[in-house]
Computed example of a mutant assay.
Amino acid sequence: MSEPAQELWPLSLEAYLAWEAKSPLRHELVGGFPRAMAGASRRHNLLVAALVAALFPLARARGCRVHAETFKLKVGPDTLYYPDLMVVYTPPGENPYYEEDACLVVEVLSPSTESQDRWEKMRAYLGLPGLQAYLLLNPEQKGLEGYFREEEGFAYRRYAEGRVLLPCLEGPLDLEDLYQALA
Rank of each mutant, 00 (worst) to 15 (best):
L126S: 08
A155Y: 09
P91L: 02
L13R: 12
Q132Y: 13
E114W: 12
L80S: 00
Y156I: 01
A68L: 07
V88R: 11
G93R: 03
P83A: 02
K72S: 02
N95V: 00
P111S: 00
R123P: 00
L131Q: 05
P172A: 06
S12Q: 06
H67L: 07
A61N: 15
V106A: 09
R163C: 08
L46M: 10
R62N: 02
N95C: 06
L104Y: 08
L126K: 13
T90N: 09
R158Y: 03
A181M: 03
Y97M: 02
E120I: 09
T79Y: 08
E100Q: 07
A155P: 10
G93A: 01
E94L: 05
P83F: 02
L165N: 07
V106N: 04
K121G: 04
Y16G: 01
G63A: 12
S23Y: 10
P92T: 01
L109T: 01
E145C: 12
P4F: 03
T113H: 12
K22L: 12
Y179M: 01
R163G: 09
Y156L: 05
R157L: 07
A181I: 01
L173K: 10
V30T: 02
C103E: 04
M86Y: 04
L144S: 10
L47F: 11
A18F: 06
E114F: 04
A36Y: 11
L173F: 01
M122P: 03
A54I: 00
G31P: 03
L166F: 08
L47M: 05
A102C: 06
V164L: 01
P57G: 02
A18L: 11
E140S: 12
L126Y: 12
M122Q: 12
R35T: 03
H27S: 06
E120D: 12
G171C: 04
M86E: 05
W119Q: 06
E107L: 07
Q6V: 14
E100R: 06
P4W: 09
L182Y: 10
P92G: 04
P10H: 06
Q180Y: 11
Q132G: 15
P129C: 02
L144R: 08
L11A: 11
D117R: 13
Q180K: 14
D101F: 08
E140V: 01
E145H: 09
E7A: 13
T90Q: 14
Y98R: 03
L126N: 14
R158Q: 13
A49T: 05
H67G: 03
A49R: 12
Y98I: 00
N95L: 03
A68Q: 08
E152V: 07
Y98Q: 01
L55H: 09
Q180P: 07
Q116A: 05
E99L: 03
E69C: 13
L58R: 15
E20N: 07
G171I: 02
P91K: 03
L51P: 00
L73S: 01
M1F: 14
R65L: 04
G127K: 07
P77H: 03
D117S: 14
L109R: 15
L144H: 08
L47C: 11
Y147V: 03
A102Q: 10
G39Y: 11
L55F: 07
R43A: 12
G31Y: 05
L166D: 00
W9A: 08
L178W: 15
L58E: 08
S112G: 13
L109G: 11
A160H: 15
E170D: 14
R149P: 11
R157K: 14
